[in-house]
């Protein structure tokens, strides 16, 4: 597909792997050693996600932990105007369904190295990004746009964790209202279907209704089996025939032998570990 990225002049800067272009980035002007972003056109066969149009989207590997979405969008706006940036922990298909937006119950943000999908407004942005010269690393945190790390960031995080009870309450109430409605709807549906045969004539038995059935759980199944077994054991006579008597004796000796073998094995192991040197 695309040509490999230009070989950087600076010694020690490595090449890009096949299909990728390399963009060095560093945190600020005073830092020396850059990280290398590996970028490529986003091209996946089955992904028909309209959030990531095939031609306009740039796939970015190896995004350092302190890079935020805003910061990436600023970095890449040099190549063309950026429509959206999406950071994920690992490459994946576009999200199937978004979970409902929640301020308080969402997952925590990943903190390590990530991958990003940068969507440009036009395909030109993608090409520009791929053919950028790698001489001078891009700078993530400048005086104009500082990126918070360390103490500053942790204090901000701490402040963000303090929630406003009123907001929390409204969100919880809204969710529970929707949930109650959903449950009520399901129950109404179940009640309507109770005792009514479907088109093939089957009647669904639920735990509710007039004649509740056994719950179909694994535990209940096991319990039933156990009960059967006990019933059978109760009926059996253990010391009735002479051979049963012999059998138990034989079994006893076999047990002793087995124990003996086990112990011998243990001893051999201990001997190997020199466990018998008392001092």
């Amino acid at each position: 597909m695309a040509t490999p990225g230009k070989r950087p002049e600076r010694s020690g800067s490595p090449a890009a792997p096949l299909g990728f272009a390399v963009i060095p980035v560093k945190f600020s002007e005073k830092h020396q050693s850059p990280h290398f972003l590996y970028v490529k056109e986003h091209k996946v066969r089955e992904d028909k996600d309209h959030n990531r149009p095939q031609n306009n989207t740039l796939f970015v590997l190896n995004v350092p932990p302190y890079c935020t979405e805003e910061c990436l969008s600023r970095l890449f706006s040099g190549f063309g105007s950026v429509q959206s940036v999406e950071l994920c922990e690992k490459p994946m298909l576009g999200e199937k369904k978004k979970p409902p937006k929640t301020k308080f119950f969402g997952a925590t943000k990943p903190l390590g190295f990530q991958v990003a999908y940068v969507v440009f407004k036009s395909p030109a942005g993608v090409q520009a990004a791929k053919s950028v010269s790698t001489d001078e690393p891009l700078v993530i945190s400048s005086n104009k746009h500082p990126v918070q790390t360390g103490i500053q960031k942790w204090i901000a995080n701490y402040a963000a964790l303090i929630v406003n009870p009123v907001e929390l309450k409204t969100e919880v109430d809204a969710f529970m209202q929707a949930y109650d409605q959903k449950i009520a709807k399901e129950e109404a549906k179940a009640e309507k279907e109770d005792g009514v045969p479907d088109e093939e004539g089957w009647v669904k038995v639920t735990r509710k209704g007039r004649r509740p059935g056994l719950p179909r759980t694994e535990a209940a199944n096991l319990r039933a089996l156990e009960r059967e077994k006990r019933k059978r054991a109760r009926k059996e006579l253990l010391n009735f025939y002479a051979w049963q008597h012999h059998e138990t004796k034989r079994e006893h000796i076999a047990q002793l032998r087995k124990k003996f073998e086990e112990d011998k094995q243990k001893i051999a192991l201990m001997r190997a570990q020199r466990k018998f040197r008392p001092y």
Binding site: G12, S13, P14, A15, A16, P17, L18, V22, K26, F27, H31, Q32, S33, P34, H35, F36, Y38, L61, N62, P64, P65, Y66, G112, F113
Partner: peptide, 25 residues
């Protein structure tokens, strides 16, 4: 490819940790 870079030695495309950058990180 987290925190790694292409190795400049050899012809095979191999990756190694970008130690200098990690130390700065």
């Amino acid at each position: 490819m987290r925190g790694r870079m292409m190795s400049s030695v050899g012809t095979d495309p191999l990756t190694v940790p970008n130690v200098q950058a990690i130390l700065e990180d």
